[in-house]
């Protein structure tokens, strides 16, 4: 109860002297409380961001390169099994000078992104229905979860038989990999919506579709974005599996095919370059697309601190 000695978070700065009247000057007392409790929001300066989040990965990469070069110098294995970083770099330069690098990367990235967008368009309504319709949920949810643990490379042989060796087969494999992730993410996001929000929404008059649009979907957004991120990872992995296994000159040359071709040529530097490029694209999309979206979603809700 209204004990006079209640202290706030900082005991040294009591909001008002004990006995100071809440009844006589509620506005002044309230303003004091607000000022004491308001959380100051600080933006980290650019240099601090650079030092905190850009420097560490650079150091890590430099370290990996140093260890790699050390192993080459120490001649731990044959030259054709472990080429030096310089030879991989030369392979990259060679690919660039022949004008093929961007084509190869773009062939795979455009396939991956287009497949992902289609997966998004299918996975989102599917997730909504699974989350909200009890019968569908009971029927489909276990299958969706199961599909997530099925390595998408397993879909390559059947889709090859169904579709033949073409782009449709690539997209089918992407969809089979990404749709369950996206749908599952949305279902998990909806399941984690605090019931209080739904009750508050209902008292405000948000029911049915309006409730879904104004309350349910925005509340489920963090889980949904996590699902999208995972969906992209699955789409990219599935595509690479498909490209490596189903390589054919008829299909445009993508990263997976490049990797497989270099293996056939016993060009280890090219194989390593292929792996690095696949890794690089995956990380770049994650950093450029998903990380900012996720950060924005979490920060605007106070779920993540600004500077660590």
């Amino acid at each position: 109860m209204a004990g006079p000695e209640t202290t706030r978070k900082e005991p040294g700065q009591a909001a008002a002297p004990p006995g100071a009247d809440g009844g006589q000057d509620p506005a002044g007392l309230g303003a004091g409380l607000d000022a004491l409790e308001a959380v100051p929001v600080r933006r980290a300066p650019l240099t601090e961001v650079l030092i905190r989040s850009v420097l560490p990965p650079i150091v890590a990469i430099a370290l990996v390169l140093a260890v790699w070069q050390g192993l080459v110098w120490a001649k731990v294995t044959d030259d054709y099994k472990l080429p030096s970083p310089a030879r991989v770099w030369a392979a990259l330069r060679d690919l660039w000078l022949r004008g093929e690098l961007l084509d190869i990367v773009w062939t795979s990235v455009s396939r991956g992104l287009f497949g992902f967008l289609v997966a998004l368009a299918i996975g989102t309504p599917l997730g909504l229905v699974v989350a909200r319709v009890r019968f569908v949920r009971a029927a489909v949810r276990p299958i969706l979860s199961g599909l997530q643990s099925l390595p998408s490379v397993a879909w390559v042989p059947p889709t090859l038989i169904w579709m033949g060796l073409n782009d449709r087969m690539m997209y089918t494999v992407i969809l089979l990999g990404a749709v369950p992730s996206i749908a599952n993410g949305l279902v998990a996001g909806i399941d984690q919506v605090p019931p209080l929000f739904l009750r508050a929404g209902r008292t405000l008059g948000a029911r049915g579709l309006r409730g879904a649009w104004h309350i349910l979907l925005p509340a489920a957004l963090p889980g949904y974005v996590a699902g999208l991120k995972q969906g992209w990872a699955f789409a990219w992995r599935s595509l690479m599996a498909a490209e490596i296994i189903a390589s054919s000159p008829d299909l445009g040359l993508g990263l997976g095919q490049y990797l497989e071709n270099q293996r056939n040529n016993s060009d280890m530097a090219g194989v390593l370059l292929g792996i690095f490029l696949i890794l690089f694209v995956g990380i770049a999309i994650e950093l450029l697309v998903f990380a900012p979206v996720e950060r924005w979603v979490l920060r605007s809700r106070g779920l993540q601190e600004r500077a660590r």
């Binding site: 309230g30 409380l33 607000d34 004491l36 409790e37 308001a38 959380v39 929001v41 809700r301 106070g302």
Partner: peptide, 9 residues
């Protein structure tokens, strides 16, 4: 933002 406000606010 909601998370920037105190409990009373």
């Amino acid at each position: 933002r909601v998370h920037e406000l105190s409990g009373g606010m």
